[in-house]
Structure formats: C-alpha cells, structure tokens
Design a protein around this nucleic acid. Structure first.
Length: 207
DNA sequence: TATGGGATTCGC
DNA sequence: CGAATCCCATAC
C-alpha cells in the first residue's frame, strides 16, 4: 500500500520522522526498480530551525520546494556531488522536511551494486544519505515530484510501526553552524540496525 | 560576475 | 584526518 498524503500532512514533524522508520522507499528510474526500508531520519523544522535551508522562512530558488504540499520530494546537491533526499511534511507553506539518511536494501540489490560500483561489505551499500541516493538512482530530477504517485520515487507501508524502545534518538549529523539547534534531538534510528549511518552521541532510547 | 562554504564520502 | 568537487546563496 502506497502512503497517501494524509501520512505527511501532520504538523508534528518528530512523530512523522519516527513513523518513517521501517517504511518502504521505492524508486523506478528508467525502468530500474529498487526498494529499501528506511532505517534513519532527521527532522528539519523551519522556520525556527537554524540548521534548515528554510530558516526564518528564507525563500530562494533552492528552498522553494520546501514550501510545497506535504508528500513532495526535496532533493538538493551537497559538496557538488551528493544528492540528498528529503520529504516535505506539514500543510503547504510550512517548510518542514525530513532527511532520509539510510535505508536497508530489499529489492534491486544487483542494480544498487552496479550503481555504487562496490560488492562488499554489503552494509556500506546504502548506510549514508549520499550513498543510498546513488544506489537507488535518486537525483535532482526528482526534486519537486509527488511521492504519493507510484512512479519515479514513492513510499509504501513496509514494516509494522517501530515501538518506542526500538528507536534511538540523538543530535543531528554535520551541525557546525546551526548554533543552538545543533543539539536538538532530531535524529532517529532503528536500534541495533546494521544499515544506519555513522554512530553519534546517543541521548535517549525508548521515548 | 566573483567568492566562500557545505545536512558527505573515501582514501591515506 | 584531509581532499574532492561544484552548486548555491550572498556580496559586490
């Protein structure tokens, strides 16, 4: 079952970030189908979040996508090389977005290996936001597309909802210039999952 | 038009 | 730990 717009429209971005764990992310790029379970997310809660591109509702050509309706893909390029995939949430006009940081491959593994150009170790195939974008064929062409339509990129129901004690919460990665919001506990991972990205200081478990 | 930095990754 | 690599936002 594909996730419909209702799933993304909540104003409570932290709840959606947790609900996304275990959901199935699917891509069909030029006829190549891949899928994987989402195992790590980070919330970016503009306008008050200094770490967000849309801090203080800043509107530029790049951030315009963030003000779109819930269930829209926001893909941007970092370090000139890596395409990072985000999901727009909240009612249209509120620039909430959730960065997907890692997935656990399900289908199309051979395609992912081919795109990444590595065979082993297997968990390094998709354990980072730049890595799984390469593996699943995600690129800037998908920026602004509708995730509720099963073409290009979309989400399906996937695994049962993670229980609170199966989720690890901590500060976000790469916060060098975000001031106070650097320490916000906006990073969510499935506990003990081997496919999550690099470890970090853990603040809470079981909440 | 010119410049500086970045929600990363990989190799040394 | 440092380079790669280039888009984007900002300043001029």
């Amino acid at each position: 079952m594909i996730l419909n717009r209702d799933f993304y429209e909540s104003i409570n971005i932290l709840e959606i970030s947790k609900s996304l764990l275990g959901k199935k992310l699917c891509t069909n790029i030029e006829g190549n189908y891949c899928s994987g379970y989402i195992v790590e997310t980070e919330a970016y809660k503009a306008p008050e979040d200094k770490a967000s591109h849309a801090y203080m509702n800043k509107l530029t050509p790049r951030t315009a996508t963030m003000f779109s309706q819930a269930g829209t893909a926001y893909v941007y390029i970092i370090y000139g090389t890596f395409h990072l995939f985000n999901i727009i949430t909240a009612p249209e006009g509120i620039p909430h977005c959730i960065l997907i940081r890692a997935v656990q491959p399900i289908e199309g593994v051979d395609i992912m290996i081919g795109r990444r150009g590595i065979m082993s170790p297997a968990h390094k195939l998709t354990n980072g936001p730049g890595k799984f974008s390469i593996a699943m064929g995600i690129n800037k062409n998908l920026n602004g597309t509708d995730l509720t339509i099963p073409d290009g990129i979309w989400l399906e129901e996937g695994l049962p909802q993670c229980k609170a004690d199966e989720i690890v919460i901590g500060p976000r990665v790469g916060m060098s210039t975000a001031g106070e919001s650097s320490n916000w506990p906006f990073r969510f991972r499935i506990k003990d999952n081997q496919w999550t990205s690099k470890p970090d200081k853990v603040w809470y478990e079981g909440f």
